[in-house]
Simulated assay, not measured.
Amino acid sequence: MPILKQCTMDFFERERDRISTVIVPCGSLEEHGPHLPLGTDTLHAQALADAVAQRHPVWSAPPLWYGVCRSSSAHPGTVGIRSATLRALVLDVVEGFVRQGMRQVVLLSGHAGGTHMATLLDAGEELLERCPDLRMAVLSVLDLGRAAWSTIQETPGDSHAGEVETSLMLHLHPKWVQGTAEEAYPTFPAHILVRNKRAYWRSGVWGNPPAASPDKGRRLLEASVAALIELIEKLKAWEEPNHP
Rank of each mutant, 00 (worst) to 15 (best):
G39H: 02
T151I: 02
P63G: 03
V24P: 03
S71P: 09
E30C: 06
A212Y: 03
W206F: 05
P25N: 11
T180W: 00
L235E: 12
P62Y: 01
T115L: 09
P132R: 10
S224T: 11
E240H: 09
L142Y: 13
S28I: 14
H191D: 10
A161W: 04
H32A: 08
H243P: 00
H75N: 10
N242P: 01
A237Y: 02
K236C: 07
T180G: 05
T151L: 03
L235T: 08
L220P: 15
H243A: 13
V79D: 01
A123Y: 10
V141F: 14
I229M: 04
H160S: 06
S109T: 08
S159H: 06
A137V: 10
V22L: 08
I19R: 13
Y185M: 13
P209W: 04
W201P: 10
V52Y: 05
L86N: 03
H243V: 07
E239V: 14
M9Q: 10
E163Q: 10
I152C: 08
S150T: 02
S73C: 13
P210E: 02
P25Q: 13
H35D: 04
D50E: 15
H116M: 15
A227G: 08
G204S: 02
M136F: 11
A45D: 02
D50F: 09
R87N: 13
I152E: 15
A223Y: 07
G77D: 00
S109A: 07
T115Q: 06
V194P: 04
R202H: 08
L89T: 11
E163V: 07
A137D: 09
I19L: 13
M102F: 01
T21G: 00
D92R: 02
R87F: 11
E183D: 03
L228K: 12
R218A: 03
R202K: 04
D17S: 11
M169R: 05
G96E: 09
W201R: 11
L128N: 03
G67Q: 05
R87W: 09
V93F: 02
T187V: 00
L89I: 12
